[in-house]
Design a protein around this nucleic acid. Structure first.
Length: 495
DNA sequence: ATATGTTTAGTCCTTT
DNA sequence: AAAGGACTAAACATAT
């Protein structure tokens, strides 16, 4: 990451409802007003001097890896993480070290034997150089100096989906399709390419009955997000090509399908508790997608009662842990609300954070391109959250120094920015260790199929590999943001 | 024959 | 409760 791309972090303390401000001047102005209204936040800001320059650098995030999740190390500081980083993490909403980070989804979906406790935190096999799905482990990372509260001693259960034939991957077919499309590095792929990628990367489907292919085809045909690109007459081969319809590209968060678009007023609720509940529900709804049981080598939908029994029993230690997490989430730690309030709500749920991690497990490194034409309208951003002790913090992320006017222009260019910045923050929250930066956009969501370098009929032999993704290209329209403008009204009183 | 693509129907679950 | 989403199964059509 280049110096100019680093995040400039100012620091007042965050409060829910804090708006996105797009220039340092406005940020400072806002800060002054805010501190006048909430003098108690001054203390939060006062310690900002202790934040060294490392705060503005994301290099340390490379050491902040989910791979470091080790229950044995959950107590005590991690020397690699400077205090300022700790501070930063705290500001970003990591409630405490040694507990489940926001990127840790709740448990509960372990109906299938061997299902990961934390399906949202996949890790790759260490030696994998290709797209490597999916083994999962607990995602947690100690934040040095932070109060340590012992967590329930559930050992991490890892599932390597690439080699484990018994566990169905917790990804929807749409997500699998999208992953395969991403992995192909081509703007369009054939059905067989999708099949191959899935079977290559998910052992489960290698051994499963081929009916899943029917489901894939069904999904491609039925899901509006996928667009068929017919072969030209002179193109050899069977079937057409498939791509993600750019119109629906925003339905994929880092490559994983969002269940449904959230309405704008969904985010208008100001109840932190409600949002926290939604947050947890979102976890379950997304991750608990495996109500299956292997019966004679065949997937069987569990009967609803049985399913419910397995999935929802509060006697489950997993859910007990969830309840614990929910307790942790009570109070003012409401990271989702921070996103909601700041962004007007798009996909800032932990579900999305998990998606980030999931893709990284597949070798799909998320890129954060900070320059180029699309950054001309970038804007700063208040971010942060409180923790469970009502200790709230906020930061102003000055990503480009551009004016609010340009960002509020509602033009096409400004929209991906919000998404991008949000994803950046998601990555921060995740401790993504692949925060990189590329100049060249990927072609995943290319508007024009003709953008492919190869001839359209040059089918690429599927080779799982690290896929550079471009956030700018990938996640276009940000629908919820500009439809929920009331949050900006609150800004006026502070400017 | 096989692969691909479309459509319908049904179940179960989550979200609104 | 209704609506929507995910999934499964199946029938059918078309292309290779």
């Amino acid at each position: 990451m280049r110096q100019e791309d680093r995040l400039t972090v100012l620091r007042p303390a965050y409060r829910p409802g804090m708006p996105v401000l797009s220039s340092p001047d406005m940020a400072n102005k806002f800060k002054e007003k805010w501190l006048a209204a909430f003098p108690e936040d001054q203390a939060t800001g006062s310690d900002s001097a202790s934040l060294d320059d490392s705060l503005t650098s994301l290099h340390w995030l490379q050491n902040f890896s989910i791979l470091n999740a080790d229950p044995e190390r959950m107590v005590g500081p991690v020397p690699e993480c400077p205090s300022s980083q700790h501070h930063f993490l705290k500001r970003l909403g990591f409630p405490r070290a040694g507990t489940d980070s926001p990127s840790s989804p709740p448990a509960g979906d372990t109906a299938a034997a061997g299902m990961p406790l934390y399906p949202g935190s996949p890790v790759t096999s260490g030696s994998e150089t290709t797209a490597a799905p999916p083994r999962f482990s607990i995602s947690a990372h100690p934040v040095p100096g932070y109060p340590q509260i012992p967590v329930q001693a559930n050992p991490p259960v890892e599932v390597d989906y690439k080699t484990n034939p018994k566990v169905k991957p917790p990804y929807s077919y749409a997500s699998l399709i999208c992953m395969a499309m991403q992995a192909s590095k081509q703007p369009k792929v054939t059905l067989s390419t999708i099949y191959n990628w899935i079977t290559e990367n998910f052992c489960y489907y290698r051994h499963a009955e081929p009916s899943w292919q029917n489901s894939i085809r069904h999904n491609l045909s039925l899901n509006k997000c996928f667009k068929k690109v017919p072969r030209q007459k002179d193109e050899p081969g069977k079937g057409g090509f498939w791509q993600i319809d750019p119109q629906y590209a925003d339905m994929f968060v880092n490559g994983i399908f969002k269940r449904r678009r959230m309405s704008a007023n969904h985010y208008s609720s100001s109840s932190a508790t409600q949002r926290q509940n939604k947050l947890l529900q979102g976890f379950h709804s997304t991750q608990n997608t495996c109500p299956y049981q292997m019966v004679g080598g065949k997937r069987k939908h569990l009967p609803s009662k049985e399913h419910s029994k397995v999935m929802r029993s509060t006697e489950s230690p997993l859910l007990a842990m969830e309840a614990n997490k929910a307790d942790i989430l009570k109070g003012d730690f409401d990271l989702a609300s921070v996103f909601d309030d700041v962004l007007g709500g798009s996909c800032s749920t932990f579900e999305d954070l998990d998606i980030n991690t999931a893709l990284s497990s597949l070798g799909c490194e998320m890129e954060v391109s900070m320059h180029g034409r699309q950054h001309s309208t970038g804007m700063g951003r208040w971010c942060g959250s409180g923790d469970m002790n009502h200790y709230q913090s906020y930061s102003y992320l000055d990503l480009s120094g551009a004016s609010m006017e340009s960002s509020m222009n509602m033009g096409e260019l400004s929209v991906p920015h919000i998404r991008q910045q949000q994803l950046e923050q998601d990555q921060l929250l995740l401790g993504h260790h692949h925060l990189q930066h590329f100049d060249e956009p990927a072609t995943l969501f290319a508007e024009q199929p003709g953008e492919a370098v190869l001839q359209p009929w040059e089918e690429i032999k599927e080779e799982p590999q690290v896929i550079p993704l471009s956030l700018d290209q990938g996640f276009g329209l940000y629908e919820g943001f500009f439809t929920d403008m009331q949050q900006w009204e609150r800004v006026e009183s502070y400017l």
